[in-house]
Design a protein around this nucleic acid. Structure first.
Lengths: 162, 162
DNA sequence: TATTGTTATACTCTATAACTATA
DNA sequence: TATAGTTATAGAGTATAACAATA
């Protein structure tokens, strides 16, 4: 055990206090119920994120969708093709012809309307148990955390750091 | 727009206030840096979660690992095989011969020791910017959220709910 | 020449069902 | 008969690099 890092906790408590695992598990359990509703509409969760990001009717380009929905460009290309083939989204023209810009078609809006009711139902249940004010606080913290983590230096330490 | 759900927000603000998206984005950005370190050790993130869950030396069975690491059984089977082939974990015998129980091998402990230093470095950076007390609060909230979400009724509403 | 997406490709994880072995 | 994992299999996302089209 001599080569164990100093001052670093380990074991179950450490694992339970891991931020990224806590984020993963919280997400998994809050998504589990909704996923069945998405399945029933033949939508994957990334597809649902795209539809939701477009839900206010404003057209968005591929780059923006990648960022907001946390989807890599090659995946998004496939997703947009699938959604367009089902008539849920339509392409809109744009000044910059390089940009692939899309918006929700009426059928896509209808799918959103059906699913968002489910989503809000789950949200209200969680809010009622968790506390609405605490939920707002949690969302603020998560958004803050994202801003903070985005400032992480590109290389935390060189090989000299040992 | 007559068929739009009543009282349901939409648009960018709504998307930004989505809990599951906030969880996803927070996780993505806090993991991005660490992933490079895991890559350098030829570990996928699920593989790293397994190693970390075993880091205190206590043997765990497959079921427990699936739960703690948020990995489905078929994935875990492959992951355990890969880690065993690399000599990072070893199987240990158990009273119940149905259970696949494993523990970290010395080489696995060494990998953990190398990577946890990186992980803690990132964690300290985030703590220093985000606030250590707030971070503890955030972790408490995330664990609470998980407990709350686990109580979600299996069927929120029947078809009668419309 | 830089930017925006798409294509190609390989790998991993997700997810469900069917199966094996043990209790 | 129930439980714990594994195998089989299909499908989707992840990720990198190479490519095409436009600015």
């Amino acid at each position: 055990m001599d080569d164990a890092p100093q001052g670093i906790p380990s074991g179950k408590e450490y694992y339970e206090r891991s931020l990224t695992v806590a984020l993963l598990r919280a997400r998994e359990v809050t998504m589990r119920r909704f996923k069945r509703f998405a399945d029933a509409e033949n939508l994957t969760l990334p597809q649902w994120r795209v539809i939701r990001a477009l839900a206010d009717g404003e057209p968005l380009d591929a780059g923006t969708l990648c960022q907001r929905c946390v989807i890599l460009p090659p995946s998004l290309t496939r997703i947009l093709r699938a959604l367009a083939e089902r008539g849920l989204i339509v392409q809109v023209s744009c000044n910059d012809a390089r940009r692939h810009t899309v918006k929700l078609a009426p059928e896509g809006q209808a799918v959103f309307n059906r699913l968002v009711v489910r989503s809000e139902g789950i949200r209200h249940y969680i809010d009622s148990k968790f506390g609405e004010a605490r939920m707002q606080e949690l969302l603020d913290m998560l958004n803050d955390l994202r801003v903070v983590a985005e400032t992480l230096p590109d290389e935390d330490e060189d090989e000299a750091g040992g």
